[in-house]
């Protein structure tokens, strides 16, 4: 039996993803063996991250303050929206340096099994952004980026929505749902889906039929 404060920290650590009871124990002893200021710094960081980080009012990405750094950045193309499931999905897209538009974080994907329907995702907000442009857009002051691109709220109109939900059953259904809704609500907007196919450096022989089938369907001229 260990003193209660130790038990409490072990229990708290073991609630973290990927941390089992042994690792929790080890982390706890590690914290005990370090100087006081290390523990204080960790505690402060934990509290601060919860107090200071919230959702971006526009795209629902993680943000310090009202808007995230991407929505704040006037160099990001406001006519281009990339739809992702979670804030964690923004990072990998950013790392490609291929994408210069803005994001829209859904907060998940359709999954009736888990009781997640269209109203549980930030879908209405997405459709409004596409229809009306972003409110209080930093790009607004510099005028429309496309000739005919201004709307009543002043933000430049979205011209393309890239749906980058995961290539899972849930992600696919979510993409199809978004595609159908946008075709109806904003037929002028181009809706695209990230291509899926062969991983770079892989062998054709080892590709499964679904992947190879999609790679074929999405083949392009060279």
């Amino acid at each position: 039996m260990q003193p209660a404060p130790i038990e409490r920290l072990v229990a708290a650590f073991s609630r973290l993803p990927g941390v089992g009871p042994r690792t929790a124990q080890r982390l706890t002893y590690h914290v005990l063996s370090r100087p006081d200021e290390d523990a204080r710094a960790l505690a402060t960081a934990l509290i601060e991250v919860k107090e200071l980080i919230g959702e971006c009012r526009i795209c629902f990405n993680l943000a310090e303050g009202e808007r995230c750094v991407i929505c704040e950045d006037p160099r990001r193309d406001p006519t281009l929206l990339c739809v992702v499931e979670t804030p964690a999905d923004v990072l990998p897209v950013e790392r490609t340096h291929e994408y210069r538009g803005r994001y829209h974080v859904l907060g998940g994907a359709l999954s009736p099994v888990d009781g997640v329907g269209p109203r549980d995702l930030r879908l209405e907000e997405l459709y409004r952004r596409v229809l009306e442009g972003d409110p209080d857009d930093p790009a607004r002051g510099s005028g429309p980026l496309v000739d005919d691109g201004t709307t009543s709220s002043g933000g430049p109109t979205v011209t393309e929505v890239v749906v980058a939900t995961n290539p899972t059953t849930s992600g696919e259904a979510t993409a199809l749902h978004i595609g159908a809704e946008l075709r109806e609500r904003s037929p002028q907007v181009r809706v695209s889906r990230l291509a899926s196919g062969l991983p770079v450096g892989a062998d054709l022989e080892h590709a499964d039929e679904v992947t190879l089938g999609r790679a074929f369907a999405g083949r392009r001229t060279i």
Partner: peptide
């Protein structure tokens, strides 16, 4: 309408 994406998937 709600079934549509699941029908396709």
């Amino acid at each position: 309408q709600e079934l549509q994406p699941w029908d396709a998937t």
